[in-house]
Design a protein around this nucleic acid. Structure first.
Lengths: 337, 337
DNA sequence: TACTCGTGAACAATCGTTTGATCATGCTAG
DNA sequence: CTAGCATGATCAAACGATTGTTCACGAGTA
């Protein structure tokens, strides 16, 4: 690896001259001739600025951390793609820190943040939003953008229109003629989970439909928990004719469980799910979903983080463009009647 | 952020004393009392070594790059989970670099590697293994482990038993009684693609079955290309009664296309796919798959990279434990007869 | 001629750690 | 009583880049 001083020697100038020329700051006084020699030398040696040195001097690493509950799900993938792409335009790199399967007493989050490895952090706590973790993150003093959760401390947040999305999903079922509608939600402590439930309740109320407590579950966002939710509803004396599932991963669980129980979808029961990932299309029946702009959420999150890094200002943003959209596939139909 | 010299001041000793004590090198001569004071001071100030400074001095960043074709697929997720977990045990961080949607002339790979950001790189080029990219990577002088491709230059590689896996899949269909078996493969330039095809051909040969060229396609590993493959086979005068699909993502495409064309799986056609991800279970019918140890592949890749970083030795490894395993679900059945 | 001023470039300190070299001290041995 | 030595700690030079300050030189002005 060629260093600045290698280039300097080859060009016959001082290190500082090289630094100034190559960093292209406005207002540097260097003659055209030297400038040229420096550029030539740099090219010949294939010079690349050493990132660690630069980071040490400037205390900017040009890297951000992305803390997510797990990497093996399509929702995360969409989000991450957005983050990655925006990061690229900002000349940033993304370090993934998954909180999945963290061994007890694991230190990776504090370490990621405390050692000056990153300029800021994007946090999406999933169902298991641990108070401790959250505090570690916000207390670190690093710029933080929290995804789908209003940041309790300082720091901005970015989220999607969960309520509107949920309303869309619920209204779709109502329009189809369903009146006995179940809700399979996430754990109640999660903020976005609360917003989704609110959206469901609003839509039901607007249609003057009653919501029986036994039809509202909150097991969680994973396939197994979706299955659990369906089990709970199936054993009721009169099960719902349609279920709104607050997360597509859980919806996949609902689907397999329905198959196991001999419940036909959509003939016996309609299913509509939150989030539209590519897995919705490969499911059977293909899932009717509400598409939330996850990719855009990722981009916005990274953009906000960049802003707060560079200007110190944190804002809470709601990503409303594109608006939540209902994608009708084959898991919903009018009630059997 | 407290620095070494902050700690030194508080403990009333020199910076070097602190450094030596905290880095716990064997054979440092420091009195118990001083040692104690240093530890106390460090704790009180919540000292954490600055990563950039350390990296600059030691030219070790304790980070590795993971270059993958794309992040939005379950195969990658498995792999990455393995890499991540192994990295954690080695006290390393993982930087993701996706080659997906790289704008023309994008420099992110050379930059990732050339600027001393990472100590080594894990590369998995997918279908689009670009010669240039590969060269950039191997020429950089950085430790490199290539995943599923024997490294053309120096540097180790790590792969799974593609042939054996493919044989397993093919034999399953043969045992079910199929004789006219199609093969939907990846692009022919990929090494693992060649190995898979070889495995298929071996199994067919061993059973003394003929392989008609028109039944062997090589469109690629993505859903759309799987669909293409099925289209090509469906328009033959006598389509195959079973198809081996060299990648589960492509198999999902095959499945939807089959539905579109009115081909029932497995009644009209059996499908067996390579790779067993969670999406196999949510598909309809659930896909019969061959499970390759992708998670273990990830771990092994990271472990190998770590070795080459620390000892300079590169080895080519084949991950054979656990062995490829056939997971029979509902996409395969005896031929219609 | 002496002075100022603008220009182009070099000097040198700094970021936080690591680490070989050095030094002060008290003790043992000759 | 002093040379020799182990011990415990400090000094100081890096690592590679950035950046405020200084310097040398020639042109322009009084």
């Amino acid at each position: 690896m060629a260093t600045l001083s290698d280039v300097a020697t080859r060009a016959g100038v001082s290190v500082s001259a090289v630094s100034r020329v190559l960093s292209e700051k406005p207002g540097v006084r260097v003659s055209v001739a030297t400038r040229q020699r420096i550029h030539d030398a740099a090219k010949e040696l294939n010079y690349r600025p050493n990132f660690t040195a630069r980071a040490l001097k400037s205390s900017r690493t040009h890297a951000v951390g992305l803390v997510v509950p797990g990497v093996t799900n399509a929702i995360f993938a969409e989000l991450m793609r957005g983050v990655e792409e925006e990061a690229r335009t900002k000349d940033y790199m993304v370090l993934i820190a998954s909180t999945e399967r963290l061994p007890e007493g694991e230190e990776s989050i504090p370490r990621l943040m405390g050692e000056g490895r990153v300029d800021g952090v994007l946090v999406q706590f999933g169902d298991h939003l641990s108070g401790d973790d959250l505090r570690t993150v916000t207390d670190s003093g690093l710029p933080v953008i929290s995804i789908n959760t209003i940041n309790p401390g300082k720091g901005g947040s970015v989220r999607v229109e969960d309520e509107a999305g949920m309303r869309l999903a619920t209204e779709h079922l109502i329009e189809l003629g369903h009146t006995r509608i179940g809700y399979a939600g996430g754990v109640p402590t999660s903020e976005s989970g609360q917003r989704r439930l609110a959206g469901f309740l609003e839509a039901m109320a607007a249609a003057k439909l009653t919501v029986e407590p036994e039809l509202v579950t909150d097991f969680g966002y994973y396939p197994k928990q979706g299955a659990q939710a369906l089990d709970a509803m199936a054993e009721l004396s009169t099960p719902p004719t349609a279920v709104v599932v607050a997360n597509i991963n859980a919806a996949h669980g609902v689907l397999s469980e329905a198959r196991r129980l001999g419940i036909r979808v959509p003939e016996d029961m309609s299913i509509v799910a939150m989030h539209d990932t590519w897995t919705a299309e490969i499911a059977w029946p293909p899932l009717t979903c509400v598409r939330l702009p996850l990719y855009e959420l990722g981009r916005a999150a990274m953009a906000s983080l960049w802003e707060i890094i560079n200007s110190g200002t944190a804002e809470d943003r709601v990503i409303a463009d594109p608006a939540p959209e209902l994608i009708v596939r084959e898991s919903t139909a009018p009630p059997a009647r």
